[in-house]
Design a protein around this nucleic acid. Structure first.
Lengths: 113, 113
DNA sequence: CCAATGATTCGATAAATGTTGAAATATAGA
DNA sequence: TCTATATTTCAACATTTATCGAATCATTGG
């Protein structure tokens, strides 16, 4: 993943409604969620939702597939993981990071919600 | 970590110069880097760098400490990990995610740079 | 105290982003 | 084909964000 795409991905997630949509999609898994359902659950008009979903798709964070009249969105886990790898790349300047407590992922209890 | 802070963190990272600064800090570790050095390495005027560092600090992604005339910035690894935990929270809707290939972090070779 | 150094704040301006109704596009069923 | 449903595109407008020189603040050494 390269810098430009990473910036687009971060920018896509840095917005209340898009972050909410992405998290719903992350939790929904491969099944995905139709655009309309996302708009309703998040509480924005369809045109706004469409705008936001386009940004997520442009950043490569979600995929879309048509299913009858609906367009189903789903999170792209590889993109999400690539994004996180980019942020932690070369963490702490090299090897010592691997086992350093300061650099290890925090425990779920400390970070959830 | 709560939604508002997460959005600020993502927004802070979603900018060319700030992303560059944060990555330098991630690699620098606890030693950190003075504001002026960051400005020089990234190629922006001191006032611009200061503006960007303030955003990173406001999002909790970096810490700052004065050392003589310099102000040293350092990455806050806990905040970074909290951010990533928030994004992957409840991934794939529950337990099956733990060992599902689609949800596992990608291999370094595929994501580096 | 004064001059030099490192950094931030302020203010004006430019550029990008978010919002949403109305119109357009695509699909399904009678 | 006509109508209803699902979604996107367009356009206008409001809001937020980025840039950077000049002025200001903080620290150090002479």
């Amino acid at each position: 993943m390269q810098a430009d795409l990473v910036i687009r991905a971060l920018g896509a997630l840095a917005q209340e409604h898009r972050l909410a949509a992405f998290r719903l999609l992350v939790q929904a898994g491969a099944a995905g969620i139709p655009a309309g359902a996302l708009a309703e659950r998040i509480g924005v008009p369809p045109s706004s939702m469409s705008f936001h979903l386009a940004q997520l798709a442009n950043a490569g964070l979600v995929t879309q597939r048509r299913e009858s009249r609906s367009i189903i969105y789903a999170a792209d886990y590889a993109a999400m993981n690539g994004l996180m790898a980019y942020l932690t790349e070369n963490c702490c300047g090299g090897l010592p990071c691997e086992d350093a407590a300061a650099c290890a992922p925090a425990k779920p209890e400390e970070t959830v919600l």
